[in-house]
């Protein structure tokens, strides 16, 4: 189970980072959201995986570690505030710059897409 969990965290991180590296604000926002899932799961993992043992006293025989849960709980809410802030920032940038590119302007094609091959490449 642990291996699958770790693999999922890895996949979420990969997808999140890939999207954050895109050039449009909305992709970056989605990337950040994926990344924050990954981070929350990663932090949650520090309490190890345990089933049927919620940290509610008197409800089960042994309890899981409640501390990472408390940290992740606030992290989820703060993560929402951050996502919201970035989204609104993206909208504001689109409104003010007229483009939803992360740099506020679209780079010239010659520098990004159709770069001629240099010698040695």
């Amino acid at each position: 189970m642990e291996g699958v969990y770790a693999f999922c965290v890895g996949v979420l991180t990969t997808c999140g980072i890939f999207l954050t590296l895109r050039g449009r604000t909305f992709s970056v926002v989605m990337g950040l959201t994926l990344l924050s899932y990954a981070v929350n799961l990663f932090l949650f993992a520090s309490g190890r995986l345990k089933m049927n043992s919620a940290a509610v006293l008197g409800q089960s025989a042994s309890y899981t570690d409640p501390l990472p849960q408390a940290l992740v709980l606030t992290a989820i809410v703060i993560g929402f505030a951050m996502t919201a802030f970035v989204v609104i920032l993206a909208m504001r940038s689109y409104a003010d710059q007229g483009s939803d590119h992360v740099d506020g302007r679209i780079p010239q094609p010659s520098t990004s897409v159709y770069r001629p091959l240099k010698r040695g490449q």
């Binding site: 642990e2 770790a6 890895g10």
Partner: peptide, 10 residues
């Protein structure tokens, strides 16, 4: 990076 993070969490 995903690989690194996955390894660490494992």
């Amino acid at each position: 990076i995903g690989g690194v993070i996955g390894t660490i969490s494992y």
